[in-house]
Amino acid sequence: MELRRLVRGRVDWPDLERVVRELADRYDRDELRVRFLDADNWLSTPMVVDDDLFVKVITKQNTLVHTLFTTGRNLGAFSAGTEGFFERYETPFEMARHELEATERIRELGVNAPEPIEAFEVGDLGVVVLEYLPEFRTLDELDREHDRTLAPDLFGTLRTVHDAGLAHGDLRAENVLIRDDEIYFIDATNVSAAGREDARSYDLASALAALEPLIGPAAAIDAALASYSIEELLAASRFLDFVAIRPDHEFDAAGLKGELGKRATTDVDRGSDSTGSSWP
C-alpha cells in the first residue's frame, strides 16, 4: 500500500479544494460532503461527494504511471505472440474523458455500469464524475457459491461487450461490482481498434484468471463455455501466462491450461459442435 501511495502520488490540498469548489458550482450545491476513498488505485484519487457522485481526480503523475503500465502490458502482449494493443493517454483530461466515453459505450449495450455524468479539467487535473453505487461488493468479496452462480452472467456480459466489437482491457475481480445480484463493469481501459480481437482474447483470459481462485478451474471453464466456444477459450489461453505475471492477478495458470486441454480433447473425441459464437 505504501508503494502504491508513493507511485500514485498525492494531489495537493489547494488543488483538491479547487476541484471541490468546481463541483459545488457545477451542481449548484452550497456545501459538499466529501469522503476520500483509501482505494488500491494507482491511477487517480477517488472520492465520494454527497453519497451520490463518484469522482476521480487524475494528475500528470497518474498519466505517467499509466504510460509505464501500458508499456509493460504491451511487452507482455508481445510475449504472448501478438502486437501490443493497449493505448496510452497524453493528458489527465484525456484519461478522464476516455473513462466517461467507455462507460457510455458499455451502458449503450445494456451492460450495467455507473451512470456517466461528465469529465472536465481543473487546471492541469482531469476530473471524471460518475454515479456512485452504494452497497456494492466486488466479485472477490462474495462467497464461493455466490460466485459460482454469477460466473455465467459474467461471461454473458463479457460476450455482449465483445459481440459489439469492443473490449474491456482490464477485467479483474476489483472491476466487477455486484449490486442486488447484478453485475456491473467499471474501469475499462483503452485498446487499439486494430488489436481488439487479441484484446478480447485477453479479456477472456483475465476473466478465467479472476474466477479460478474463487470457484476453481473446472467451474470457471464451465461458466465460460455457456457463452464462448472451446476454440475461443484455447485462443485466450495463450494470454494466461501474461495475465499471471500481473500483480493484481493470483491464480493457477497451469490448472486452467490443464483443464482446457482436457475439455478440448473431450470435445474432439465427441465430435461435437462448439458452444457459443465467434466474435467478428
Results as ranks from 00 to 15, higher is better:
E141S: 13
A80C: 01
L16P: 03
E108P: 01
I117D: 10
R144K: 10
P116V: 06
W42V: 10
T45M: 14
K60T: 10
R105Y: 04
E90I: 04
E104I: 05
L32K: 03
Y89C: 08
V129M: 05
A96P: 04
E94I: 07
R35A: 09
D25Y: 08
D38M: 03
V65T: 14
R148D: 01
S44R: 01
E17Y: 12
H98G: 01
V7K: 09
L64W: 09
G84D: 07
Q61P: 05
E115S: 11
W42N: 07
E108A: 11
L64Y: 12
V7Y: 15
P46Q: 01
D51G: 13
E141C: 10
V11A: 02
V49C: 08
R18Q: 12
P114A: 08
L100S: 00
A113T: 06
E83Q: 07
A113Q: 03
V11G: 02
A80M: 01
I117Q: 09
V57Y: 05
F54M: 05
L133N: 04
F85G: 05
D147Q: 15
V129Y: 08
R26E: 03
I117P: 07
V11F: 09
F85N: 02
Q61N: 14
L16W: 09
D15T: 10
L53I: 06
R137W: 11
V48C: 01
E87Q: 15
G110S: 12
L150W: 09
D30V: 11
E83W: 11
D28N: 10
V127T: 02
W13Y: 11
L75H: 06
V34N: 05
V128M: 03
F78Q: 04
R21T: 10
G76S: 11
A102S: 10
L68G: 06
D52G: 06
E141I: 06
F86H: 15
V128S: 04
D124L: 08
E118F: 08
R137P: 03
L75W: 12
F136K: 07
D51E: 15
H146E: 15
D40V: 07
G76Y: 07
L64H: 04
T71M: 13
R29C: 09
H98Y: 15
G76N: 06
T67W: 13
L6C: 05
V111A: 00
T59E: 14
H66C: 07
L142G: 04
D30N: 13
T103D: 02
P114H: 07
T63F: 07
V129Q: 01
D50Y: 05
W42G: 07
L125T: 04
V7N: 04
A96Q: 03
V7M: 15
E118V: 00
E99G: 04
L64N: 01
V11S: 02
D143F: 03
E131Q: 11
L130Q: 09
R97Y: 10
E83L: 06
H66S: 10
S44T: 04
T149L: 14
